Simulated assay, not measured.
Amino acid sequence: MTIRLPGAGGALRTYEPRTEPLAVTPGTPFTSRTVFSAAHVVADPFADVSPDSPAAVDWDATLAFRRHLWSHGLGVAEAMDTAQRGMGLDWAGAAELIRRSAAEAKSVGGRIACGVGTDQIASGSLAEVRAAYEEQLALVEESGAQAILMASRALAAAASGPEDYLEVYGHLLRQAAEPVVLHWLGPMFDPALEGYWGSADLDAATDTFLDVIAAHPDKVDGIKVSLLDAQREIDIRRRLPKGVRCYTGDDFNYPELIAGDEQGFSHALLGIFDPLGPLAAQAVRVLDTGDVQGFRDLLDPTVGLSRHLFQTPTRFYKTGVVFLAWLAGHQSHFAMVGGLQSARSLPHFATAYELADGLGLFPDPKLAEERMKTLLSMYGVNQ
């Protein structure tokens, strides 16, 4: 059986889908790395909403996907940008997501960390930014989840220089009940975060970022670096205080960063592990045995798909992630909060399907093929 797929130039090409998925099974907990998958939310397709309405979430399907990730040993990074935080999911929706997911994690013994930001305000003074962070930090801690201090659009707008970042983050770290993860999200993921840490010069910004950590090493479990710059992440990793972890957020270079070198390695907190969950878990278990080459043999072939999903404009990678979840049977529809399913083109979807199918990511390749053909027919491509 074949399927006709459109290329970037509009011409149709013939592709023969695989008939069997990659064989993966849940296994033992990881021993060499701590690994989180940032997880997407499933929209309620029957809600009568517009792109400007508060998010309508299918809670059953959303929580079922988190159980899928936990079943393979992955931690869940909740209410992050993969969950369309700030791109369709507002603070009220994120708060409900955190409460529900944290309770679900407790019931199944899953690891969870949740995003703490300031998205209940669009802008404000430094005092208002602090208060917004405090409100969210309190909710996450009350839920029993680990906190991830996310980059704040409001702080980026209010801060006049590095000293403001040092003051705000220092204040939050002093009052955090448990060590947190600090998240540096680059402007390729959110243009409003340009110049974060008080400078557009990345060397100067890195120094400020590390100053925050050095002043409070006992309150920082780790950092998540999402700059898509492998060498900078390695440089930062080597400058961290002892005991502070580096969680790679580099969806372009994650295999080499997780594998590490003679001076250390990165743990992982990645959006691409949403569609790669079972395969990524299998690769990490191979790495647990000390087989670095076996780990790379499994994970290196996935980089092409990841780079495709995260291509410019990178912030729309969520569309590809949800598209693959639909094809894989994790949800019954391809609808997204905020109508974001329209953010990528049909040729983009076709390539994503082909790459994911080639990796064996679809538990039921026939279902994925049928759903891809359904999408193609909606665009006028008949088989």
Score class of each variant (00 low, 15 high):
T2E: 15
A8V: 14
A11P: 00
Y15N: 02
E16H: 10
E20D: 09
F30L: 14
T31I: 08
V35A: 11
F36C: 06
F36E: 05
S37K: 01
A38G: 05
H40E: 06
H40V: 10
D44T: 03
D48I: 00
P51I: 05
P51R: 12
A56V: 05
D58P: 07
W59Y: 10
D60A: 13
A61V: 11
F65M: 12
F65P: 00
R66F: 09
W70R: 04
G73M: 02
A77L: 11
A77C: 08
A79E: 00
Q84E: 13
Q84D: 12
G86E: 12
A95V: 05
A95H: 10
R99D: 08
A103T: 07
K106R: 15
G109K: 09
G115N: 02
I121H: 10
G124V: 07
L126P: 07
A131T: 11
Y133G: 01
E134D: 12
E142S: 11
Q146T: 05
A147C: 14
A147N: 00
A147S: 12
M150Q: 08
A151Y: 00
R153K: 10
A157I: 01
A159S: 10
Y165V: 06
E167A: 15
R174D: 13
A176I: 01
E178F: 06
E178Y: 04
L185R: 00
L185P: 02
P187A: 11
E194D: 13
G198R: 07
A200C: 13
L202I: 11
T206N: 09
F209T: 02
L210A: 09
I213Q: 05
A215P: 01
K219V: 00
V220P: 09
V220C: 10
G222Y: 04
G222D: 04
V225P: 03
L227K: 01
R232D: 09
I234C: 07
R239Y: 04
L240I: 08
K242V: 15
K242T: 15
V244S: 07
R245L: 14
C246I: 05
D251A: 10
Y254Q: 04
P255V: 06
L257H: 08
A259L: 14
S266Q: 09
G271P: 02
G277N: 00
G277Q: 01
G277E: 00
G277L: 02
P278I: 06
L279R: 10
A283R: 02
D288F: 06
G290E: 15
D291L: 01
Q293V: 06
Q293L: 06
F310V: 07
Q311E: 12
Q311R: 15
T312K: 15
T314L: 12
T314V: 14
R315L: 15
L324T: 04
L324Y: 09
A325Y: 08
L327H: 04
A328Q: 12
G329N: 12
Q331G: 04
G338C: 04
A343G: 01
A343H: 01
P347V: 14
A350N: 09
T351S: 10
A352V: 08
L355A: 13
D357T: 06
G358I: 09
P365R: 13
A368I: 08
M372K: 02
L376N: 03
M378F: 12
Y379N: 14
N382F: 09
